[in-house]
Structures are given as structure tokens and as C-alpha cells.
Nucleic acid binder design. Structure first.
Lengths: 358, 358
DNA sequence: TTGTATGCGTTATCAG
DNA sequence: CTGATAACGCATACAA
């Protein structure tokens, strides 16, 4: 047991051990302790004797550096801010996990801000945007519906990187890393048309960025491939599992009914699968469903969900590299192309060839 | 547009505005600025004229206090550490969301540590346990499988609270808030036996704490109610969705087959539901399945999962109150009763009355 | 090889 | 009413 711990109940009133304490205990100057503990010995020679004595005392006293004091002197805080669009969404939760890992690999810890919090607008300025606590900020998910947050962040003194903010080139306030939504939707549509579907509906949300791009990719595809009227086959709903019910009901009332649905993400797709089950619509026999993201539970859905696997690891890695990496920060990224990674279609059992007309 | 922002690309090289800057611009002493901006005016009178002038200049310059400098002077950091057992698990992800909200309501931001990270053992000391960054630490999920982390945290200078660490009274290193696992399992078993099940299996993980308690609650219930042999009906697997497959296969090979399974959590339960689907076992007709947690996607499973709803909001609120609330910190909590909240059985379509013998 | 002094941005304690 | 000045814990330029 070290001297610093008493082994019983945590005593949160003990005073932290400072360099000064170590210095006094060792009978040297505080600066000497600093040099030894920071291994500046390469440049400034230190007698082996004092070095070892100081090191021993430091460990014995369980000395730990005070990060804030270092930060005050200009050292990086090793804190990476993360503002997540909606942490309750399964996809963002897994993205956050990936981000946390990527950050930690570089010795960074994540400071969380949830954009969906009630007072996000007001608190953006205080808690989360106290930028000086962080070395950089990563935005996860499209946050353009939080205008004040974006406005405050643009022109921040630290780097701000946006992940999954859509991929259009112009007018982006931050460097962006994302997924090729068009390619993803095309892959889904190719898959469905290849197995005979012609009446393909789309269920999305009214959010911007990725969601918007997936919708327009769907529309383009329909126009190009001369598929059934895209207008009445589109449903924009709230991004909740329970949204599937109403969307499916109104879609199913159409004539001709869609034989397949492309959902803008897995949350919606799983909601549709569940709604189909509740409505006695067989998936995939009566209706094929494709999602987007490949959240962890997509594989375990009943039936397993055909979806587009998000290259989460790559996107997060690129984002972290931009945020806290050594590469130069782009001077002007307003018209810089976003970094884009490719999704991959994972075919499971929620899609099947269209049944021959009975 | 304020003076401080240039409106084009974020310039992360600009120097932050300090009190000194404000003071110079206002032609007063820096200490005066501090007093005015901190509203110490109640006690120390300040001329209205300078007050207004300083305040105007401060806003004009977009001055923001430097939290680290304040922390250095003993102010709280307004940072709450959170170490999550496994952030990729859907339940812990939602718990984290709740924790984040509860913290922010008190003006706190969350600093994340994921116990599953590769180097958790080593990094526990550095990144996460740099306790001085946080005012308190909340442990989410049982972390006793990280002995070094727990060891470092016990006897910490700051408050450490454990959530979902099981509820046994003795030998807990931290104050604990959790769920009544026994009551939950009893409710599940009561439900199943009430609709005729006698051969009830249990699928859990080999983790400690809650998982352990749910298993022993199952065993006790079986013994008390004289249900079928509990020994061969128990499967302990890794906490992954894919674990369901093997667990179900071996369970299904038994004679007599179980007619129902209680899973220790929803991840396992959903894995079982999916495995049953793949194995052409009808849920609930051939097999009833009960989960534990009521993760967001449980309601959208096919069929909807009968499960025990975790009182997440209450547990998190109690934990945050303990960690950063105003109440006294228990001097010795080694034998103090944990705070326990009740789960609630949510009956959906994954359970049904046992079929009369064909 | 080591000690002294300074400053990072704040707040608090003195004087004036 | 306000202005110097000393800390907070650390890193470093400068002295010795």
C-alpha cells in the first residue's frame, strides 16, 4: 500500500500531492523535480543519485501531475470535445464508441455534449463550447438544426471537425468526413431492382445532410431508371422507431403498393420491420426492407436487416486525425472537398426477389 | 458580428481574450474586471459607471473565462468522469445518454472513459484517473473485472459512485445505485409460471454484479417453486448478440426442452429471438423469451420483447446526486445499503401461454 | 548539476 | 470604490 492511500473509505478531502511536496520531501527545488519527472535529462544532465531519490519519493507519494496547471502553460489538454446529434440513436451511440476508442489511442479523453439536450442552445456557449477545455471538437451527425451552436463554433480558436454532416462541397462551416450517401442508396436500389422490384418507396427524416442526400439520391435513381412515381412513395417522419407504423400504413394504402422500402437509416428500417410484423405484412415475402448504417442490432433483427454498412472506423479515424492529428489544418475549407468513405451493402434476409404476380 | 470573430475560416491561432485584455481596454485593473464579471458587487460596491463600461467591453471582446485557471484556484471543474463498462452495449449507451442529460442539468459535462478499451488497465491511471480533471467519477456497469481500475479509484480524493454494480451490501468499494435484480427476475418468473411455464431456462453472462444476482435469483426461484432442474437449463455466454445462437442450440437439444428462457439482459434476449428465428423456432408459440433492461429497440423487436424496464432515469439521477450533489458524502459506506430501484415488467409479444401438449 | 524567478489566467486579500 | 499583489501547480529561461 502506498503512503497516499488509506485503504478505507475514499477520502475526498485529502490534498493532492504537488511537485512542491515532492521537492520538499526530497530536499530539492521544485524545478528539479519537474525536470526529472519530465525526462528533460537528455538535454540537462541530472545526477543519478538525486534523480533516483526524487523518482522514488514521487512514486511513494503517489504524485500525479495536474493537467490544468499544464494546460495553463499552453500544454494540450488531451481532451477532445464531442457533440453528438442524438446519443440515444443506436447508430450515433456506436459511432461515439468508435470515436472514444480512436481518441484514446492518441491519449485523448472525450468530453461529451449532447445536442439534443433541452437547453442545448443556451448551454452551447457555456459547458460544451468552453472551447478552451478541449484541444478540438468533433461534431457527430448533422447539427445544422442548431444554428447557434454552429455559429459559435465557426470561427472557434480550436479545430472543429464535422462527421456525418453530409458531403456537399459548398458552404460547409467545418472540414467534413462522411459517407457516400449516393453510392449507398444506389447500391440499395441496384440490389432491389436486380431482384425484380419496381415499386420502391423511401422512408426518411426531414433532417439535413446525410438524410437529405439519401432522399435526393433515391429521387435521382427513380428518375433515371424510370421507376414508379417517387412522389407518393416518399415518407418523411421523425427519427424514431415508432415512426415506422404510420409510414408503413400510409404506404400500404397506396395502389400499387410498394414491394420494397429503402429507409434512410436503420432506426427507421427496424421500425418498419416491426410495423410490418404488427400489420401482418411478411418481410421479405410481401415487402423487402433495406436500412442504412448496419447498427449492431441490425444483424439480430427478425429477419436480419439488409443494410448499408457504415465505414464508421474509417470515418472516425479520419475525423480524429483531422482534429488532433499532426497534419496541417486546411486554411480555407469552404470549397474543399469533404473526405468521403464508401458504405457497403450487407444483404441479409429482409430483402428477397419479388414474388411473381399471383 | 462581434469583434472577436472573423467570419471566414475558423482561426485556431487567435489568442483567447483574457481578463487582462478587458482590463487594458477598459483602463482599469484586472482585479476590478474580475469583481465585476463575477458579480461580487453585492459585498464590494462598484461604481455603476465602470461596471457598465467593463461589462460592455467584455461582451464586445467576447471574453470568456478560462475554466482551467479557475480550477487551479480551487473552483470545481464542472467535469464529471464516466467510466462505462461497455459503451457498445445498447443498454449502457442509453444509460450514458441519461447520465449525460442528468449531468448537464447541473451544468456538468461528461468526460468519457470506456473500460473495454484495449489499454484500460494501463490508461486507467493516466487518462481517466487523472482525477483532478473531474469533480467526481461515475462508474457505469460492473467493473470489478478491472481490478486495477477499482483499486486506483478506491481511496480517490474525489467522489466515486458506482451504478449497476450489483446490490449486495458487503464489501462494496463505492456507494452504489442499482436495480432490484431479484425482484426483476421474480417478476419475469412469476409472469412465465402464471401462464403455465414450468421448464424455464436462463441465459446469462459470467460477469459479476447484476448478472450474478439475476442468475442466483433465478436459481432461488426455481428451488422455491420446485421448477425443473436449474442446472442444465443455465447457459453462461459472452455478452454479445451472436451468443444467442449457441446457447439456444444446446438448450434446444435438451429433453425436456425449455418452453421459456429468461435472459439476463436484452442483448442476450434479442440474440435468442434472432437465433430462434433462424432455427425455425417460433417465438412465442414454441418458446417464450424474456429480457432485462428494455433497451430502446426491444419494443421494435419481432416480436416485441417482453422485458424488465430499467428505472434508468431514477438510477442515474440518484447517482449524479451522490456524485455532485450537495448531500453529505457517507463517511463509511462499506456496509451501507445500496440505493435500489425497482424494475417493471413490460409484457410484449415474445411471451405467451404455454401450448397444451399436442 | 541544481536553484531562483517568472508567467500561464483567475480569484482573493490586502492596502489605499 | 479601486488598484496592487499573492497564490493555485507547473515548465522553463536564467543564474549560480
Amino acid at each position: 500500500m502506498t503512503i497516499g492511500s488509506n485503504g478505507s473509505t475514499g477520502a475526498q478531502d485529502r490534498r493532492p500531492v504537488t511537485m512542491k511536496d515532492v521537492a520538499e520531501a526530497a530536499g530539492v527545488a521544485q524545478s528539479t523535480v519537474s525536470r526529472i519527472l519530465n525526462d528533460v535529462a537528455e538535454r540537462i544532465p541530472i545526477s543519478v543519485e538525486t534523480r533516483e531519490r526524487v523518482q522514488a519519493i514521487a512514486t511513494q507519494l503517489d504524485y500525479r501531475p495536474h493537467p490544468f496547471a499544464r494546460a495553463l502553460r499552453g500544454a494540450p489538454t488531451m481532451l477532445l470535445g464531442a457533440v453528438v446529434r442524438d446519443i440515444t440513436d443506436a447508430f450515433f451511440a456506436s459511432a461515439l464508441a468508435a470515436l472514444s476508442n480512436a481518441a484514446r489511442e492518441r491519449g485523448y479523453a472525450l468530453v461529451l455534449g449532447d445536442a439534443r439536450a433541452k437547453a442545448a442552445e443556451a448551454l452551447a456557449l457555456t459547458a460544451v463550447l468552453e472551447e478552451r477545455q478541449c484541444d478540438a471538437i468533433v461534431l457527430v451527425g448533422d447539427l445544422r438544426n442548431e444554428p447557434r451552436l454552429v455559429e459559435d463554433l465557426r470561427g472557434a480558436r480550436i479545430r472543429v471537425v464535422a462527421l456525418w454532416h453530409g458531403t456537399e462541397r459548398r458552404g460547409r462551416p467545418f472540414p467534413t468526413v462522411g459517407v457516400d450517401n449516393r453510392a449507398g442508396v444506389r447500391a440499395a436500389m441496384d440490389h432491389l431492382t436486380a431482384i425484380g422490384h419496381r415499386n420502391i418507396a423511401f422512408v426518411g427524416t426531414d433532417a439535413l445532410g446525410d438524410m437529405q442526400e439519401r432522399l435526393s439520391a433515391y429521387r435521382e435513381y427513380c428518375a433515371l431508371s424510370d421507376l414508379a412515381s417517387t412522389k407518393s412513395y416518399v415518407r418523411l417522419v421523425a427519427n424514431k422507431i415508432s415512426s415506422g407504423e404510420r409510414a408503413l400504413a400510409t404506404l400500404w394504402a397506396l395502389s400499387p403498393r410498394p414491394t420494397a422500402i429503402v429507409a434512410a437509416n436503420d432506426t427507421l428500417a427496424l421500425g418498419l420491420v416491426h410495423a410490418a410484423f404488427e400489420g401482418n405484412i411478411a418481410v421479405p415475402d410481401d415487402l423487402s426492407i433495406v436500412g442504412f448504417d448496419d447498427v449492431p442490432l441490425a444483424a439480430a433483427a427478425v429477419p436480419g436487416l439488409t443494410t448499408l454498412r457504415m465505414p464508421t472506423a474509417e470515418i472516425v479515424a479520419a475525423g480524429v486525425e483531422l482534429a488532433i492529428g499532426t497534419a496541417d489544418w486546411p486554411r480555407d475549407f469552404q470549397d474543399l472537398a469533404p473526405t468521403v468513405f464508401q458504405p457497403k451493402l450487407i444483404v441479409r434476409r429482409s430483402t428477397a426477389a419479388i414474388k411473381p404476380k399471383a
